[in-house]
């Protein structure tokens, strides 16, 4: 893999090819940060901060075994740190709007938007580990082993957490739908 070769350059840490690293990893880091923050500008800031960290700790780069996991972990922690400063109501709604099908009628689009918002809200209310596993599993580039390495869990634990997260999310959404229908019937 090219980035790993770029990172594990001989012995001179100063010879790390940062432009190559940025080119290879910026998209995945952006997706990781965006899944937490749901804001494009904030996610870009996180990616930039992650590469600044790389620059500052480039002396230790040759000792890094899996550079992608290491970078994703940095970006993940930075995004979580930044996420603590943002309230859920301050998060960008443009992501939910972008998922709504534009070809349907306005009332159907509104209902779909509300459903997506409900899913995002329930995802925020999931337990921390389950939410982390669910969000990281949404990123294609990351395997279960890599997610386990990022979160410091075993692979089986990650699989169990993912299954539990989806189950819990399904149940909560069903309950929410029932509640909504009851209110509408009244």
């Amino acid at each position: 893999m090219f980035p790993r070769a770029a990172a594990s350059t001989d012995n001179a840490a100063s010879q790390v090819d940062l432009p190559a690293l940025v080119h290879a990893y910026a998209p995945v880091l952006f997706r990781v940060a965006y899944s937490v923050l749901r804001s494009r500008t904030e996610a870009e800031d996180v990616v930039q901060d992650a590469f600044v960290r790389v620059l500052e700790h480039r002396q230790s780069l040759p000792g890094v075994r899996d550079l992608r996991v290491w970078l994703v972990r940095i970006a993940w922690n930075l995004a979580l740190d930044r996420r603590r400063r943002i309230r859920p109501d301050q998060m960008d709604e443009s992501f939910a709007r972008s998922l709504v099908d534009g070809s349907v009628a306005a009332d159907a689009a509104l209902a779909e938007f509300q459903q997506i918002q409900a899913v995002l809200g329930e995802m925020e209310r999931l337990p921390k580990t389950e939410r982390s596993v669910l969000l990281l599993s949404a990123i294609d580039e990351l395997s279960t082993a890599e997610i386990a390495s990022i979160l410091g869990r075993s692979e089986s634990a990650v699989r169990a957490l993912l299954s539990r997260a989806r189950q819990r999310l399904r149940e909560r959404l069903a309950k929410g739908e029932e509640r909504r229908w009851k209110i509408l019937k009244k």
Binding site: A26, F95, S98, L99, V119, L120, L134, L169, R170, L173
Partner: peptide, 22 residues
């Protein structure tokens, strides 16, 4: 609801970085 969850996760998966970010 399962479909909506999949839609959301696939939306997160398909997010493209902004132009000129690199």
């Amino acid at each position: 609801p399962e479909e909506v969850v999949d839609t959301v996760l696939s939306g997160l998966r398909a997010v493209a970085p902004p132009v000129g970010m690199e």
